[in-house]
Each structure stands twice: as C-alpha cells, then as structure tokens.
Design a protein around this nucleic acid. Structure first.
Lengths: 160, 160
DNA sequence: GGATGACTGAACAATCTGCCTAGTGATCTT
DNA sequence: AAGATCACTAGGCAGATTGTTCAGTCATCC
C-alpha cells in the first residue's frame, strides 16, 4: 500500500494525541469527516494500523528491568515448539523472534529487579529444547516502537 | 502500583477489543461506569497504560523485513550522542537500547527487503561514533509486545 | 464514633459515531 | 468525447458515548 502525506499526518495525529476523535482529526487536518474515516479504514484494511491498543508499560507495575536473551535450541526440536513452550512457561517474555546467526532465538523480557531476572532466565533455560542462553541487560531504552519518522519518510518519498 | 484482578480484566478487555468504549467495558465487567473510568485513570496515572495508541505495522506499507543490529561505539563518544545521531540518521530504526555485554547498543530495524536492509545497515555504520556493527535477520516474530500473561500473573500473585 | 476511600446508580448537556444523501472534480475507459 | 469510476466535500439524522456531578452504600482505618 502506498502512503501519502495525508495518511502520514493522520497517523502522526493519532500517535501524538491518541484519544483524538476522528471528527477532531478531520477538523485539524482540514478535511471532511468522511475522508478521515475512509482513510483510517483504508489504513486499517491494509494492515498499516493493526489496531488502536493500550500500550502497557511493565515498569508501571514494577517490572522495570529489561533484558535481552539469545537462545540456542536443540537441533532436534522444532523452533515453533520451543517458541510456544517458552511463551507458556515465561510470562515475562515480551518479544520473541526467530533469528539468523549464531543464536536461534532472541527474547526481550522484563523483570522486577536483577535478582528476579536471574529467576526468569533460569526458567527460560529450563524449557525443553533450550540448549544455551546468553543475556544482556538494557540500561536505557532510547526508542521503543518508533515508526513515525519512517512513516513520514515513506510519505515524502512517495510524493516526489 | 498494585494491580488486582479487575485491573487485569480491564487491560485484557481493552487489549482484545481496543475500540471498546469505557461504558461497554463497564457493562461487560459488571461494574459501574464510574468505577471503570476511575480504574482506567488510575492505571494511566501509574504509568501502567502509557497511552492508547495506534499500533503501526511497517509491514503494512512494505517494510516487511525485521533485523537486529548490535552496535559497538567509540569509547570517546557518549552513548546518548550516538543514540540521537542514529535516531536522526536512520528512520528505519524502530527500537534502540543501550545494553550491557560485548556490544554497546542493540537496534531493531525494518527494511523493504534484504537488498534495502544492506543499505540501512550501511547508513547505521556511517553514523559518527559507530565503530562496528553485527546484525541478524528476524525470520519469524513469535511475540511482539506481549504483556497480557504478565499482567494476569501479577494480578493473580497480588491476590493470594 | 467518625473520617476516608471505593463502588453503585442515576442524571445532564455536549459530543461523537455510524449511516446516508448529494454535488464536485479528476482520472480512466471505451 | 461521452460515460464511468473514484476520492473528497458538506450536510443531516438517530443513537450511543463522554465528561461531570450528585447522593447513597459499604468497608476500612484512626
């Protein structure tokens, strides 16, 4: 799908002031309500905007430590099996990807503190199929799910 | 902040059916509207729910390749300087963390395809202060920003 | 005993939503 | 060139939701 400036502005508006009603968005962008509605529907259908969801910050209820964990897997066990086993066994896992390279999987997980992180990592290591893990702690999160610059970039490029 | 079952249910409801009005949430949970409103406000104030934002999927507009990149930094350059330089120079960077371990930073970035990923990584490498990079491609995303199990876990634990 | 805090139930005006219609201009097709 | 298609504007309507306020109940805490 091709995104133009209007789409980008709409996304920006909704990202910066999430609770903004469509009607108000239309007013701010200087377009008719129907246009804003149909644009939004199109973005929705194309999968650009998956949904408008509450972004939950685990730090808000005490899980302030973020860590990454590289996982090596037993060759004999399927990736998907390990993935679902991990997902079930460790609620502290926030992101999970299968990756190329030295490791097979990469996790992002959260914990209350360094001590509890140890516990979380132990639980990861205990999951059947997990051969070895290597982890690092995130000291600072500079960006998290930032897409606005990319959306703008695409909108600009599409115009020229 | 302490999260109880009602909070967890509210978060679950809003996560599963994001556009649900507060009034409808209250009905489904069998509570008064004022209660749902004040609970939500409390979650907001505590930072548990940062905002209700549109989740944009770069794959929706062509950026279907996800990659991770470990970055080593010149010791003489401050982390924050490199971080902001990277953020400005490469819109394709979605997540950026400062991490412990062999590398200094870890990035998650998106690209249109493998060929363009090369280009993106080149731009990363060119940023002043970046000494070396190592990257891997995400072949599958099993989980992305999953917090519901953790919220439930916390709610259960808090009750007992 | 009295104060505090959380929840219920209800009401109000203001606003937003979904849905529909009609007109305009640009692009594309035959 | 006529006709069709598409996106946008502008407006209207009923129904639902929101912010806000009030009064009453119940449990906890000092």
């Amino acid at each position: 799908m091709r995104i133009d400036r209007l789409d980008a502005d709409l996304i920006r508006l909704l990202t910066e002031e999430p609770q903004l009603p469509i009607l108000e968005c239309a007013r701010r962008l200087g377009i008719a309500r129907g246009t804003a509605t149909s644009r939004l529907a199109r973005l929705h259908d194309a999968g650009v905007i998956e949904a408008i969801v509450p972004r939950v910050d685990p730090a808000g209820f005490g899980y302030g430590v973020v860590a990454f964990c590289l996982v090596e897997i037993d060759q004999k066990v399927g990736h998907d099996d390990v993935a679902s086993a991990l997902a079930d066994a460790v609620p502290e896992i926030v992101d999970m990807h299968t990756v190329t390279g030295a490791s097979d999987m990469q996790l992002r997980l959260v914990a209350r503190d360094a001590a509890q992180l140890q516990d979380v990592l132990d639980r990861v290591a205990l999951v059947p199929g997990v051969a070895r893990t290597a982890s690092s702690i995130a000291m600072r999160t500079h960006l998290q799910g930032r897409v606005l610059p990319l959306v703008n970039h695409v909108a600009e490029a599409g115009e020229g």
